[in-house]
Simulated assay, not measured.
Amino acid sequence: MTKFIIISVLIILFGGFLYWAYLPDYRRNPKEFWRTLIGMPIGMILGGIGFRDLNEQIKKWAVAEKNEKEN
């Protein structure tokens, strides 16, 4: 029973984090939201374990459409 409560609280906290952290980005551009949602955590993990080049490639992938629109 205790495990269920702990898991439920963690899921609620994670859902709240996603709501408040990513909602402004979703409102700005819903089409690129999935790139941000996928790219940010993966890039942070890769950067944290020392794969800086992969982190930069993911960053370029996540903002590719923005750069194309600006040019």
Rank of each mutant, 00 (worst) to 15 (best):
M1V: 12
K3R: 11
I5L: 11
I5T: 15
I6R: 12
I6G: 01
I7G: 03
I7Y: 15
S8T: 14
V9F: 05
L10I: 05
L10R: 06
L13Y: 08
G16D: 01
G16H: 01
F17Q: 04
F17W: 15
L18D: 03
Y19W: 14
Y19E: 06
W20I: 14
W20R: 07
A21V: 12
A21P: 01
A21I: 01
Y22T: 12
L23H: 09
P24L: 04
Y26S: 01
Y26C: 05
Y26R: 08
R27N: 13
R27A: 09
N29P: 00
K31N: 14
E32Q: 12
F33G: 05
F33I: 10
F33R: 01
F33A: 13
W34F: 15
T36D: 03
T36E: 02
I38Q: 04
G39L: 06
M40I: 10
M40T: 08
P41F: 01
P41N: 04
P41I: 04
P41D: 03
I42C: 00
I42T: 02
I42D: 00
G43M: 08
M44E: 01
M44F: 10
M44Q: 14
I45N: 04
I45Y: 13
G48I: 09
G48Y: 02
I49E: 04
G50V: 01
F51K: 03
F51E: 02
D53N: 10
L54H: 06
L54I: 07
L54T: 00
L54P: 01
L54Q: 14
N55C: 13
N55F: 13
E56A: 13
E56F: 09
I58V: 15
K59E: 11
K60M: 03
K60R: 14
W61G: 06
A62H: 06
A64G: 03
A64N: 13
A64H: 07
K66L: 14
E68Y: 06
E68G: 00
K69E: 12
K69R: 15
E70G: 13
N71E: 14
